[in-house]
């Protein structure tokens, strides 16, 4: 070894790097610097020797701490007692898929439930609208209880009674294309419900405008169920027994416009009628007993008696 003189600062710098040199963690260039210094510096070489000796002694002494054989056996037994849980077996990436699938299933369940409720409410709307359709079919279509020539308005007002006489003008005004042939109070066999029934003719067909007291019946709310809104009155539509029916609901009454015209035509008719009828109804005073003779079609009366 060529012993050379190094200043103290250089030795201190090299000694700071000796730990990393000992652990083989120095860069190649730095290792070369250290080696060059060690070749010429006896003091630093002795220091490295001491540190290496200490490390080797520790490395030699530590393996004397061998595990007892029973430890291996205990671990072996414990591992067999403990199986990874269900969730631990799931692949991490499949967690995402599993969560996505659960989300889809939950969304489908929620949407399915909403769709089911919507269908239920649609069925309820159809059941309520069928009240108007059944009166139109029984009284106007099957019973043909209207004259070929329209009855005089005075006679119709008399049939309607003082409470509803005013509605005749409303119907005539809001259905300019139609002629009111008949207006009366009627009922359908098997039901105590009374209907204020206007039978009109126009556009080559018969159109009924029908009002009845709600009697606890209520059309369900919901944007998806509505066919439109006119003057703040929600309109409901259905096609039942070959007829187009548009229904509307007031505080105490249900109203119907029924005919075999197209859907859009019926909605136009109802848009004009619904708010006007509400005004007409609120102008008259309501009474539980209508106080007039209920019109009951002969054919229906016969059916009732024959049924009895």
């Amino acid at each position: 070894m060529n012993v050379m003189r190094f200043d103290t600062q250089q030795c201190e710098r090299i000694r700071r790097q000796l730990d990393a040199y000992l652990s083989n963690e120095l860069l190649v260039e730095t290792t070369s610097d250290v080696l060059r210094h060690l070749e010429g510096c006896e003091a630093c070489s002795r220091e490295l020797e001491s540190r290496t000796k200490l490390r080797d002694a520790l490395r030699k002494a530590a393996p004397s701490q061998l595990p007892p054989e029973r430890l291996r056996q205990t671990i072996h037994q414990n591992l067999r007692k403990t199986q990874p849980g269900f969730w631990a077996k799931l692949e991490t990436r499949n967690w995402v898929l599993a969560v996505a699938m659960v989300t889809v299933v939950l969304c489908a369940a929620v949407l399915g439930q909403r769709w089911y409720h919507l269908q239920q409410r649609r069925r309820l709307v159809a059941n309520i609208l069928s009240l108007g359709v059944s009166d139109h079919l029984h009284c106007a279509i099957q019973g043909h209880h209207y004259p070929d020539v329209a009855n005089p308005p005075e006679q119709l007002r008399k049939k309607l009674g003082p409470e509803y006489a005013g509605l005749l003008g409303v119907v005539q005004q809001k259905l300019p294309d139609f002629q009111v042939l008949e207006a009366h109070i009627c009922s359908v066999p098997g039901s105590p419900r009374k209907y204020i029934h206007f039978i009109t003719r126009g556009r080559g067909t018969i159109l009924s405008v029908i009002l009845t007291k709600r009697g606890g019946v209520s059309l369900p709310g919901g944007r998806l169920l509505l066919a439109g809104v006119s003057g703040g009155v929600p309109l409901y539509h259905a096609r039942l027994s070959g007829m187009e029916v548009v229904g509307f609901q007031y505080k105490d009454y249900l109203g119907f416009a029924v005919s075999d015209l197209g859907r859009n035509e019926m909605l136009q008719v109802a848009e004009g009628l619904a708010p006007a009828l509400e005004t007409g109804l609120s102008a008259g005073s309501e009474s539980e007993d209508l106080g007039i003779t209920i019109f009951r079609p002969r054919a229906l009366q016969w059916r009732e008696s024959s049924g009895a």
């Binding site: 595990p67 007892p68 430890l71 205990t74 671990i75 414990n78 591992l79 403990t82 990874p84 849980g85 631990a88 077996k89 799931l90 692949e91 991490t92």
Partner: peptide, 20 residues
């Protein structure tokens, strides 16, 4: 030694549980 054995046993059990 007994604490060291307990520790090593726990390490192996935890490693097995999270081996996935």
């Amino acid at each position: 030694p007994s604490e060291a054995e307990d520790l090593v046993q726990e390490v192996y059990l935890e490693a097995w549980k999270s081996y996935h």
